[in-house]
Design a binder for these strands. Structure first.
Lengths: 360, 360
DNA sequence: AAATAAAATGCAAACGTTTGCATTTATTTT
DNA sequence: AAAATAAATGCAAACGTTTGCATTTTATTT
């Protein structure tokens, strides 16, 4: 039977007025009499009327929908960003279509096409690791759809961007390691072709250069960023190489993989080898020893990204003015990098003992 | 300038045919000549045409969009479900609008209204903890929109459902504890008003009843399911009560909170007190000792949910036939519940040493 | 070559809003 | 009380597709 949904026409008919008036009444247009509005609202409720935003979008040429593309939703970093984005976008009357590129350039392209077809009012994207060509994003701009990139960005595009100051986050962390007395270090991270790892390495190198140490002269491992791969690499590495004093891991997951390999060999952290991570994943405060890392304020990043997009949308400029928001991450010192003598100096007592994180 | 987007009309005009033909050609309609199709496709590319799915949806009365409401996206359980859902829905030509209820009944109601207004082809929902009235879901059915509930479900509604067999998951875990020789137990979990905790307790009670133990006669803590709250509760509890042999926590996060309180007191797990969790959160395999828990196959749950919805949509029946998919969870035994004597009997070597989980 | 069947295309309405402009109705001013 | 102004409503087109039915074109049969 596909029960017919009530439309503004139905409301209009049963009140002996026109659809225009109903439309305006429902949108609380100032030119409509108060009493008329009330009649309309009452009748709408009575008929169980639900607005059809598709029709509205068609007429207006724009949907009240924002598209968002992330590599994966089941990464805390990204799902927190999503939460931040929604906290800004929903109150503004937009809702989110979330797409996952799964680190595939082709899927990213498909996602873009879907979002354009949906006539979204704007697009937020953190590009996949695989993406090297940006024509699909240029197409978005060609369709006059505002675009904001976050976290994984590219210099090739002149659009609004939100990024973490990976250089300084990494620099601060390296400074901490230096202050603890570590000199003999090892770097592990994802490929430096990606801006995040590139920048994190830059901060690491910079801090070391300041004390006359060449980061490139010490071990550097660039590889797959998964826990498992890093675990395997590290198992093998430990067999054939001397231990550094500290491992600077540009990712918590990689750090975790290394930790498992290290502990499996019976080595003590931080006594035999110290280690730090990056991102402050929920588990970082839960493992033993608690992991020194860098908090990225992902929810804030989401908010900043959404705000930038909203401004872009509301401005309705023909020429977009590319702006950049740079978020400053925060060093979180925990046990995994503390020298025995300074074990009690944990600068971050709170997050050391009672980490954030709620459960389902 | 708001550069005008090309429409099928534009294509039609420049090829001296009608929009109908163009529309059919683009949709690969069998009645259109191959050569015509090729002309159209070529011209579409040339004009940089992007279909307007809003217009299509309006005409067809249905969007190619599915709405999904979860309490939060930044919970591994839910974000994995999302991944599962997308893996089924995207290939079928649908995309997801994701909404978060944030455990608020009012937000859930708002989400539903938005989704109805968007004329989504179907809705997937895991209800918020706060939700006690289901009129908003009845409204969905009233609009003939297929609805599938997952994980957090209710008996009050006669719709398709996907749930975990919490009773048996919990039963299996309790059996394991009994086999390890534990008798003196303590339960901690969320309120038993919620089906998940209700059922998990039922499995726990059942297994205990079989050996003549009354679960209710032993300590039972029902509370807020956050790590922090549980940590505080447990700190206090340890001051005033004797230790049980084992703590059955119906949530990994609650278990983690308890573990922190226990370890802070200098007590050893599992030697002084054993503990188990539920859900197999990523950190469960990373902490020390590794946590015995129950894997819920969340991605599978997402797939099952999406499949049920797709069937519902494609069937286009007037009367929906409510079906239920029940997923069997799997016990994962790790160190936190193993008796000293049987430390080597870890039945799940793989997940014990090399847990799943990739990093950003 | 005409008649018939099959294939391809065209016509026009419809989907449910929104909105600029025109018109009507109510209110104020002279 | 008429004129001028303000407030409220109506008219009709438009947004870009899809689709049942009618029509034209092409292929097949006699």
């Amino acid at each position: 039977m596909a029960k017919k949904q009530a439309t503004i026409q139905d409301i209009a008919r049963s009140l002996n007025i026109t659809a225009s008036t109903v439309s305006r009444a429902l949108n609380d247009h100032p030119k409509i009499k108060k009493t008329t509005k009330e009649l309309v609202w009452e009748k709408a409720r009575e008929l169980n009327y639900q607005p059809n935003s598709i029709a509205a979008s068609l007429r207006k040429g724009k949907a009240n929908t924002i598209g968002m593309i992330v590599p994966r939703v089941n990464r805390h970093f990204f799902s927190n960003i999503i939460t931040g984005v929604e906290s800004v976008l929903n109150p503004a009357g937009y809702n989110l279509i979330i797409c996952q590129s799964e680190e595939s350039e082709q899927k990213e392209i498909n996602n873009i096409d879907t979002l354009i077809a949906s006539r979204v009012a704007g697009i937020l994207i953190s590009i996949s690791l695989e993406t090297s060509n940006f024509d699909h994003l240029r197409k978005v701009l060609g369709h006059n759809i505002p675009l904001v990139m976050f976290d994984r960005i590219t210099d090739e595009l002149d659009v609004c961007k939100v990024e973490n100051d990976d250089v300084s986050g990494s620099y601060d962390l390296t400074r901490h390691l230096i202050e603890q007395g570590y000199r003999n270090m090892m770097w592990i991270g994802g490929s430096r072709r990606f801006n995040t790892y590139h920048n994190r390495f830059a901060g690491y190198r910079k801090a070391l250069a300041e004390i006359g140490i060449d980061a490139e002269a010490m071990p550097v491992y660039e590889g797959n960023i998964s826990l498992e791969t890093t675990y395997e690499f590290m198992c093998d590495y430990l067999l054939h190489h001397p231990l550094p004093e500290v491992i600077f891991s540009a990712s918590d997951y990689m750090a975790m993989g290394a930790i498992m390999a290290i502990q499996e060999k019976g080595l003590k952290i931080p006594d035999d080898v110290a280690i730090s991570g990056y991102s402050n994943e929920p588990f970082a405060a839960l493992i033993n020893p608690k992991l020194t890392t860098v908090e990225q304020f992902s929810k804030e990043m989401g908010k900043a990204t959404a705000r930038l997009l909203l401004e872009e949308i509301l401005a309705e400029r023909d020429e977009m003015i590319p702006r950049k928001t740079i978020l400053r991450p925060k060093l979180i010192v925990r046990e995994s990098t503390l020298r025995k003598s300074s074990q009690s100096q944990d600068t971050n007592k709170t997050s050391g003992t009672k980490p954030a994180g709620k459960s389902k």
